[in-house]
């Protein structure tokens, strides 16, 4: 009885303290829950981060990945349901906001790659997210290329790089080379060789269907599946070959590369 009261009394203290702190903090800085703004103030350089990581570079990279995912989820990946003229519509970011968010997300992934260049998933998924017609395929292409350059032993990055080189940039030469290299990487599944053959012979729609469905089979998360399902649906509806190129053509000229380059 006595000890029970004792415990209760002491349990009250941290609870009250926590409530107080959270309230104060929400007022002052708004870090809880995190308030994601489009703009990001980036402090430490990746070189500094990895130097101070106490030998835990992968863990720092994990943190940067979580942060990037969170950023994505609160900006590009966020779809708000709204009532317009009595109908429910889904709305994401638009116009200039998309450009800002894409560039920040791209920057976050590049920073991450400077910390752990061998981390496959961020450039792979990050590229996938940016390749979304609603985002910025050029930047997606950039992280994919950076990732493949820094981690030449990863068949995934080579495969995606090759595939997108063809699908987006129509660069068959690079695509062939990358797919070739992918098959030589350790752990590369056999279908990559098929994709390479299809690249030479099959029409875009067939190549795209094989690629998307294979990728769908390998997807680990719901987010990937949603994206890939969209691609497959587009194929079913007969829109374009890869569901990307028209968007890219449209974007390409109003997007100059110098914009992307000065990333720390």
């Amino acid at each position: 009885m006595k000890t029970g009261m004792f415990a209760v009394r002491w349990a009250v203290v941290p609870v009250v303290l926590a409530v107080l702190l959270v309230t104060l903090d929400r007022e002052a800085t708004g870090w809880w829950p995190p308030r994601y703004t489009l703009e990001r103030q980036v402090q430490a350089s990746p070189a500094m981060l990895s130097m101070l990581s106490f030998g835990l570079r992968p863990l720092v990279a994990d943190y940067l990945w979580i942060d990037a995912v969170q950023y994505f989820g609160h900006t590009l990946g966020r779809h708000v349901h709204d009532l317009v003229d009595g109908r429910i519509v889904e709305r994401g970011l638009t116009g200039a906001d998309v450009r800002v968010a894409s560039r920040v997300f791209h920057l976050l992934i590049k920073r991450l790659l400077a910390v752990d260049p061998l981390f496959v998933r961020p450039p792979m998924l990050g590229a996938m997210f940016l390749m979304d017609p609603h985002a910025d395929p050029a930047l997606g292409m950039d992280i994919l290329q950076t990732g493949a350059r820094k981690n030449p032993g990863s068949w995934q990055l080579r495969l995606w790089n090759g595939f997108y080189s063809y699908a987006l940039l129509r660069d068959k030469e690079t695509a062939r080379r990358e797919l070739m290299a992918a098959t030589a990487c350790p752990g590369c599944p056999s279908y990559v060789a098929d994709v390479r053959l299809l690249l030479e012979t099959a029409p875009d729609t067939v190549l795209a269907r094989v690629f998307w469905s294979r990728a769908y089979g390998e997807a680990r998360t719901e987010e990937e599946r949603v994206y890939l399902q969209q691609r497959l649906d587009e194929l079913d509806e007969g829109i374009g070959g890869f569901g990307l190129e028209h968007r890219h053509e449209h974007e390409h000229h109003d997007h100059d590369e110098a914009h992307v380059a000065p990333v720390r």
């Binding site: 992968p58 995912v69 969170q70």
Partner: peptide, 20 residues
């Protein structure tokens, strides 16, 4: 929730970090 399919990696990294 956080890692989009990298939970094994995160737990491994964190586990090793915490070990250290």
């Amino acid at each position: 929730e956080w890692t989009l399919g990298e939970e094994v990696r995160l737990v491994t990294d964190l586990g090793l970090g915490a070990m250290l």
